[in-house]
Every structure is written in structure tokens, then in C-alpha cells.
Design a protein around this nucleic acid. Sequence first.
DNA 1: TGAATAGTGTCTGTGAGACAATATTAT
DNA 2: ATAATATTGTCTCACAGACACTATTCA
Lengths: 256, 256
Amino acid sequence: MEIKYTTDLLIFAIDDKENENCRELSKKSLSLLLVKRTKEPFKNMWCLPGGFVFDNETSLDAAKRILKKETNLQNFYLEQLKTFDEINRDPRGRIISTAYISLVDKKMIKQDLSKNAVWFDLEIIEEKNNICINLRNELDSININLLKNIVNEKSKQYNYKLVNSNIAFDHGLIINEGIKDLRKKANSSDIIFNMMPNKFTIGELKQVYEIILNKKLINSAFRRVIASKIEPTNEIIKNGGHRPSQYFKYKNNLGE
Amino acid sequence: MEIKYTTDLLIFAIDDKENENCRELSKKSLSLLLVKRTKEPFKNMWCLPGGFVFDNETSLDAAKRILKKETNLQNFYLEQLKTFDEINRDPRGRIISTAYISLVDKKMIKQDLSKNAVWFDLEIIEEKNNICINLRNELDSININLLKNIVNEKSKQYNYKLVNSNIAFDHGLIINEGIKDLRKKANSSDIIFNMMPNKFTIGELKQVYEIILNKKLINSAFRRVIASKIEPTNEIIKNGGHRPSQYFKYKNNLGE
DNA sequence: TGAATAGTGTCTGTGAGACAATATTAT
DNA sequence: ATAATATTGTCTCACAGACACTATTCA
């Protein structure tokens, strides 16, 4: 049987909502880029951007190419997530997919997105063994329901089954794995800064961490922890009816 | 071009060395299972156990099958590590490999290993940008030299280049990624208990953590941290010229 | 003046590092 | 007695959670 090799991309970014109350910081949300399928199978359904890996490229090369095609962005964070190879994951045959996570800064997208690509707001509701992922925008609403099972008790290793979803292929599974990975890495690395503009206030940065980790953070504790990773710029922004804030930028601590 | 899909396994275990001083605990080391290639390419060189993924199975199924074939073990920890798909990683053509990590308890291997499979002691020497991995046993000695490069400064994302090695294919790269993953997970999960027998003393457990993490641990601190993960059995072992120790077993804290 | 965020200070509890002290056994 | 590990205790320091307090701006 002939095997085909593809890649699928989880392109995450932060969305800034307009706010009617000019004093408040703009509300933010995690957003994920999806494209609408134009062909069978799953015609007219949403799915992750992706495509076949060419003979002369690796899956990472292909992921870079697709990121550029969909967003016109280059040189953003891109890392292998996992390979999905269930036998019947694609009705067209044996198609395996190595998924990648990319984190981008939406404001860097100068030109338009590719024709079929649209950002969706992402929300996760997690209960004991059920995970519900909602993707929403003005056009559509997508629901993904997953069941969580323990595989190996000694290592708290879980697997996830797709109960139902209105997204193409097994992309509900891929999105779920991607979110878990993003959260894990948000805690243990500086990955989040890939989604931030060059200059940002500590309040904005805290908002982003709160969205990714899905919990409220304590102001002073957050400042303490983040302090070593950022450095102040000379710029100050007066952005509403409150004390002005300083712009900070990411500090490279490579030597340490 | 036709693509072939394979899996390679990193099967890790802990080795107990005999000790001439009967008072001391037996020295331990991390060991990795390798097989000797019987065919070209890389004939007579060592490589990771692995093989083609059949049409009717996933790479995880194939990994389970190969683990059983090489060790006669089933139901041990097995988790996807990463997919390796460099274009020229295999001289026979475009062959991509999804690698898995398995952790096993050597003492559970009742029958012999498969004919070509042998355990090697593993040692890692890490300098600034150089990583040197040595695999040794009575039969042979394998050296793997890698260069570490930064890819994405904001996320401390690195990639590794194989400088030279006397192991087949890109398996030096796979081993390096596997060790990094093992260390990361040793700190953040209970994965290590998959390599332990059902009953063990805290001293033995500490030895294993020290080998994996490659650093000395403080006795009392280790006991404090590990206490919540283990529970005492009624058995006590008098194993030398020192105070006898209690056998412990892994405690499942799934409800918490 | 009040709403809202920026930024600082401080108290408390937890947990890790360091190390000391005691226990127990075989040789 | 001695070497070696087992087990417990304790002191200190770093850090996170919680919350209070001050600063500053615009409407």
C-alpha cells in the first residue's frame, strides 16, 4: 500500500478585542488559524492548514512553506508536535501527518491571509474525563468533544478519543494535543514571547499568560517571576484612564 | 517517490553491576538496547531496534510488536518521541521513522533477548555546544558526537547536528533526543517507576534518579519529595553491613 | 472624584538545599 | 570497632500565594 506523508499546522496567535470601556485593557483571546476545505473528503468543513510533504523537503520544510503560504510569515516559532498515523484517519488511504505548532504575532501579518484561512477564537472546557474545545468566529462555530483515558498509571500517560466533532479528519485530536503542549511549554520555557510584539506592557503579557494557562495570575507574583525575562525600554504608554505603563521587551538570557 | 514508514525504539533500562565491596549498594547504569545490522546498508554496525510499520497497524502498534520481538516484554511504558524525516537519513530511499521511547525493568525479561539484541551502558558528556554520547559493553564501544545550535532564542529551541558517530543511520540523533526527553519527563512525571521492580528501597530509587538526571541528590530532600509517590511494604531487606532498609512500592495517586 | 491599571511592599507557608545526628547491620 | 547505608530532624533560604497600599491618568 502506498503511504502519503503530510503535515498539519497549529498556528496560534493572540487576538485583541476592541473594548467599549476605554479604561480597561483590551480583552484578549487565543486564536487558531483554520482553512475551509474546497474538495472532498470533508468538503466545506474547516480543518488545519497543511499539505503534502514534497520529495525534496522534510516535514519541517513543508511546515515552513505552508506557514508562509497561509500567513506570509517567516521565521516564527515552529516545532514538531507529534505524528498522527491512525489507519483510517483519512478516507483517501494511508496518510500520515506530522503536526507542527507555530506561534505568531498577528500584528506582523502585513498582507492578507490566504483566501480560505480564517482565525477562530479558541476556548477549552475541561472536566474530569471530558474535554470540550470550542472554536468560534463571526462565520462559524466548531465543537470538539474528547474522552480522556489513562494508559499507563505509573507515568500518568493519557490518550484521547474523539467522541464527536464538526472539524475535518482527526484534527480535533491534533488541536487537543497542541493545546496541552502549548500549556506545558508556557510553564517551562519562554515560548509565549513568540506571540508577543517587540514591545509590550507587563499587564498585556500577564493577559496572554492567563489565556494560555487558563487561570488568573496574581499581579505581584507574576511581576516577580517575569522580571528576569524582560527588560524595560525607555518608552511609556498612556493608554487610558489609569497610571501609564512602561513598555518592556524580551531579554535574551542565553549566557546564563 | 515512494515513501516508506518505519519505527525505531529507544528501549531504556537500569543495569545492576556486581560490586566487590559487599557493603556498598550495587552500582547502577543506564542501559540502552541495540541490535547489530545483518544487512546493508550499515551492515555489522549497531542500530536501534526497529522496522517497517505494516499496512494494518499504527507506528505505536509496530513499536509494541518490536518491543515484544526483541525483549519478550509487553505492557511496558511506550510513548512517541519524535518523527525523523531528513531526506537522506536512509540511503535506500525516502524512509521516515517515528521513534518511540520504552522504559522497562530488566529483571522482568525471563527469556533471552532476540539473537542480535544487546544492552549497552550509556554515558553522556555535555559541554557548551558539544554533546558526546558513549555506549559501551564487553563487545563494543560506540561514540556519538553532536553539535548543539540555537534555533529560536525566545523559546530556547535547539537543534542538533551529528558530527560523527559509529552507529547506523541518524540513530545518534534519535538517542540524543530520547535522553533529553527522558530527563525532562523524569523531573515532571513518575515515568522512572516503569524501570523499577515492584519492590525497591529508597536508596535504590535514588540511585536510578541520580543516573537519569546525571547529578547527586541530597538524601533527606529526595526522601521528602518521593514520599508522596511511594508506600511502604511490610518487607525489610538486610542486604549488607549496614542498617536494613524497608521495601517500598509505587503508590497510585490517580484520585489526587 | 472615581474607575481602572501600574507598580511596590510585606506577611505567610511550602519546599528545597545543606548537613547533622542517630540506627543498624556484617565483617 | 568500622564501614556503609537507612532514617529522621532541623536550620536556612528562595519563592509563590495572598493581599494591601500607593501612583497616575482620563473622563
